[in-house]
Structure formats: C-alpha cells, structure tokens
Amino acid sequence: MRVRKRDNNFIERSIMGALCFLKGSVFSDEYASRPGFLQSLDPRIKFITFIIFILAVLFTKSIAVSFVFYILCLALAYFSKIDLVFFLKRTWIFIPLFSLFIAIPALFSVFSPGEAIFSFRVVNLNFIITRQGLYGASLFVARVIASVSFAVLLSITTKHFELLKVLRVVRVPQVFVMVLGMCYRYIYLFIEVVENTYMAIKSRVGRRIDYKKGQHMVAWSMASLWYRSYQLNEAVYGAMLSRGYRGEPVISHDFKAGPKDWVWLVLVTFISGALLYCGGLWKFNII
C-alpha cells in the first residue's frame, strides 16, 4: 500500500500504471528469451539455486558478504545479457529505496543505543549516530537490495509460465499450480478491461474529478470487473472441457537438466556455504 501525490488525476495514473506494468512484463519475457547464461539453465535448477542465494543472504550476518552476493548478482545479470541500467532501475525502485529511507532513523541512538561514533546538533536537539545503528541499518539495506535483486533476476531470466511450472518441484499442490497458471493469463485480460474502462470514463468526463466521485468510480470499476469475471467463468469451463479437462489438472513436464545444470547447482551450494562461513569469521570486524 502506497500513497502517491502528483498533479494529474488518478485515472491518468491508473492507465499509466497498467501500461508500465504490461510493458515491464513484455520486456521481462524478451530478456528471458535472450541467449544468456541464466537463460540456458534448466528452470528447476535455476529456481533452486536462486532460493539458495536468497536464503544465504537471509542467513548472513555480515555486510561484506551481503555486498559480495550483490556483486555476484550483478555479474550474473551481465553474463545473462541483461541491460544493467534497466536491471538497476528495476531493482532499486521501490523496495530498496524505501528501505534506505526507513533505515535512516535506525542510525541514531534513539532507536539504536550504543557506542557513539558521530554527533551533531539541530535546533537544540543532539543527534548521535551509534556504531550499532550504522551496522544494523547498513546490513538491513544491503540484505534487502541483494535479496530483491536475486528475486528480480530470477523472474526476468525465466519465462513466466516456466517459473510457475517449476513450483511442482517444491511439491506445491497441483490445484495451486493450475490456478497460478490460469490466474497469470487473467491478470493481463483484466488489466486490459480496466484500462479500456478508464479510457472510456476519461473520454466522457474530461480531466478533473473530485475524490468522492473518484472513489465511486474505482468501486464501480471493481464491481463491474467482478461481474464480468463471474460471467466469464462458464465460458472458460466450457473451453476447459472441450480441451479434455476431466476434473483433475494435468501439467506437462518438458524440463531436462544436463551436466552444466548440476555443476552450477554444486557451485552455487559451495559458493554460498563458503561465503556464509567467511561471514561468520568477518562479521565482527566490518565496522
């Protein structure tokens, strides 16, 4: 949940948001189709290795190790032919920047009491930055940016329908996998419906709409979307029956892991283990 403040009205913003979302997804699939290193891996092994990376980042207590993981992630993005400017933009906005912002108060003795390393006065108020605060805030931001980067890299180097199929590997019940796959397709359809609805409203009412009317419009759009979705249900079920659905979903597997994938799995496990071990040795000497 976020609050945004801009000059143009909320209809404009919703349309722009939906368009950006769609464009971002199209770009993601474009990256997933490029002949890069991560794209060449078996999606199941890639998923497992990225979970290992994210867990290693979660478990480390060292800022240096979090930073090494982040550099490793950027290197993987580079070797997978991902435009680094696009990748940095995609990963830094919104979560890491927000985390950086909320970590600032944690630098000070009010929230992180301890050994003072720097102090300054603003209008009779004494602000003290502590060693504990600096360590906690830095580790927090480093951990968030490294984990978010790995999660985004996984999603942009894997075709989305393959990533959803991979969930079978972690024993997610078939009903969830089937619903996930269908849900993914409906999201695009629904965004298009909402976009068309807003475009139609905008073309009829002009630019300025007061907030009360705006709230009614949003609620009406949601109600209308649900009404249309509910009607869609029967048509979709008919289509499923005509394609052979008999009450149990069948999900095909066409993944094939080769020697390169297994070597990558062993390498990632070794690197993550080694970095975590080193982090244990370094953690008290970082700041």
């Binding site: 945004r4 409906y186 709230q215 949003v218």
Partner: peptide
Amino acid sequence: LAIGAAFSFVIMMFNVPI
C-alpha cells in the same frame, strides 16, 4: 478460483483517490 486470484491481484493495483 483463478479468476478470483487475478481479481485480487488487479484490485491491489487500483489507485483510490483520498
């Protein structure tokens, strides 16, 4: 169920004026 999931995803994207 899938339609409900997509619906919950999309309604989280709506900007509600305040």
